[in-house]
Amino acid sequence: MKLLVVSDNHGWDSILTDLKRRYEHKVDAMIHCGDSELKADNPAVEGYTIVRGNCDMEDQFPNDVLESVEDCRVFVTHGHRYDVKMTLLNLSYKAKEHSADFVFFGHSHTAGVEQQDGVIYLNPGSISLPRGRREKTYAIVEVDKHQTAVRFFDEKHHEVENMRTTFSR
């Protein structure tokens, strides 16, 4: 399984179009963790599983999505409703409630990934306004029967190599 995860483009629709053109037929799902600031009928968001962020006015985007991709359960949210800038505890309760293998979220604009109790928590960072690093980032998650690999890329699609992380399954 291979997933594209992006968040917090804040109106920059051409980057979503570029990501779609690059990955649409190479990944099993394209996931957007909110704050697109785009309308649901904008062609740039077509094909993405997308949630509503605190800066999104589009009420057609759901607050949370539980997606099954191959044999994995993926919980997607923006994160502002779960206090992700303070703790992952609230998200961990949702992960347990939904038996999620992955939790993807944005909001803080800070890229990072960690595993707790077998669940992988991923914030792809912001593709437009990063915090904590200079790179504008998105993530590619690749899962096979032995491991999960998470790689971060900048807006020019260069890997941010010191952020590569692998988890055993």
Rank of each mutant, 00 (worst) to 15 (best):
E67P: 00
N54R: 04
K94P: 04
F61Q: 06
S99M: 08
G79Y: 00
S99L: 09
L91M: 10
A44H: 05
F61S: 08
A44G: 02
T49E: 14
V76L: 14
S99D: 15
R81D: 06
K94H: 04
V45K: 04
M57W: 03
Y93C: 05
F75N: 09
C55V: 01
S68G: 08
D56T: 00
S99F: 07
S92Y: 06
Y82S: 01
R81G: 00
N90D: 12
S92I: 10
E70G: 01
E58L: 03
F75C: 03
Y82K: 01
D56L: 00
V84C: 07
Y93M: 12
H98S: 11
R81S: 03
D56Q: 00
D56F: 01
T87L: 06
K85S: 12
E97V: 01
K85T: 03
V74S: 06
M57E: 03
E58M: 02
G47N: 10
C72I: 10
Q60R: 14
T49Q: 11
R73A: 04
F75K: 02
D71C: 07
E67M: 13
V51R: 09
Q60V: 06
K94Y: 04
R73F: 02
G79S: 06
T77Y: 04
L88P: 05
G79N: 02
H98W: 06
V69S: 15
G53I: 06
D71K: 13
N90S: 14
N63G: 13
V45T: 11
L91G: 05
P43H: 05
V51H: 13
N42V: 01
R52E: 11
E67F: 13
S99E: 14
A95Y: 07
Y48Q: 09
E97A: 08
Y48V: 10
K94W: 02
D83P: 00
F61E: 06
T87V: 07
L88F: 14
Q60F: 11
V69Q: 12
V76I: 15
F61I: 07
H80T: 00
G53H: 03
Q60G: 13
R73C: 04
V65Y: 11
L88G: 04
D71N: 15
H80F: 02
Y48P: 09
V65W: 09
F61C: 10
V51N: 12
V65F: 08
V65K: 15
N63S: 11
G79K: 01
V69I: 15
T77G: 03
E58K: 03
L66K: 13
T77Q: 01
G79V: 02
V45C: 02
K85C: 09
K94N: 07
V65A: 14
R81Y: 02
H98T: 12
H78G: 03
C72Y: 13
S68L: 09
D56E: 00
G47L: 03
D64K: 12
K85F: 04
K94V: 12
F75L: 15
L89F: 07
K96Q: 14
N90W: 08
P43Y: 03
L88Q: 03
F61Y: 15
L88V: 13
E70C: 04
V51G: 11
E67R: 14
V84F: 05
